[in-house]
Computed example of a mutant assay.
Amino acid sequence: MKNQFLSQYVADNLRACQLKQLSILEEIDRICQKHRLTYWLDGGTLLGAMRHGGFIPWDDDIDLGMTLEDLQKFIEIAPSELPEGLFLQTPQSDPSSKEPIIKIRDLNSMYIESSDTFNAPYQKGLFVDIFPFIDYPSIPKSWVKKLTKGISTSYSILHAQHYYSLRAFLEFFYFSAKYGLFKGIWSVLCLLYKKDTYLSNVLINNGYGIMHRKDSVFPISEIAFEGKMFKAPANPDAYLKDLYKNYMDIPPKEKQKIHAIYIHPELMKKP
């Protein structure tokens, strides 16, 4: 049964959550501009900027895109550039984290999703997601969708928490084989087809088979988000149509859901 008191608590803390995430975004923007690294608002964050001028009213995260090359540079630079209280979370910096997504976490907060594991010691503060983008071969979208869905689903299952059973044993071998096969096919296609027209998220994060034309992303532009200017794709309209089709349509009330099941924007008051 849904706990109405907890749901109301999360809703009451949503705006404080958004503003703290905005402050993280400002730090990322500062570092990227200082070191001439390219990023752009992605996903629901770009949608919010276009449709609402800021956060989607019920959204509780920020999504950014970076080229894989620039993200690798950012990972090297960020630990020494981030202010105290912000943490670059990667599989290397926080090995108990189960997600492959790069996050900048605020350590003086807590953000819990339904998939979180309380007894695992990974950092669970409010965050901004940064997704690495790579070049895609110019192949039919149906091929991309089939391959990326198979790769991302297999990866998720192989890296999920497992319990010993015959089914888990069989699943491990099935999805290991599927992951290896689909990755191999992708590698061959990358050799056979040019990669000068499209880019998108790395395969394990692209279960929907999204592809963007490079000329809809570059050269990077700017867009207003919460009263401040941040980096955006060259053609936000085309970019968002790739993701959501009729992105200006407001979804029905039952689909306006906050991701978190618990938000605590500030654990300790600063003196």
Rank of each mutant, 00 (worst) to 15 (best):
L6W: 07
I24T: 05
E26N: 09
L37C: 08
W40A: 01
L41S: 08
G54I: 01
D60Q: 03
D60W: 09
I62T: 04
L64W: 04
T67M: 12
E69S: 13
K73M: 06
L82K: 02
L82A: 03
P91G: 08
S93T: 14
P95V: 09
K98M: 14
I101V: 15
R105H: 03
L107T: 01
S109Q: 00
F118R: 15
A120I: 13
Y122I: 05
W143C: 10
L147E: 08
S154C: 04
H159S: 12
A160W: 11
Q161G: 14
Y174P: 04
A177E: 10
L181N: 04
F182E: 11
G184N: 07
T197Q: 11
N201Y: 08
V202P: 06
V202C: 11
K214R: 12
P219K: 07
S221F: 07
E222R: 15
I223T: 13
F225A: 02
G227D: 11
F230R: 01
F230T: 04
N235C: 10
D237P: 12
L243R: 03
N246P: 06
Y247I: 07
M248Q: 15
P252D: 13
K253R: 14
H259M: 05
H259V: 00
H259G: 04
K270C: 00
K270E: 02
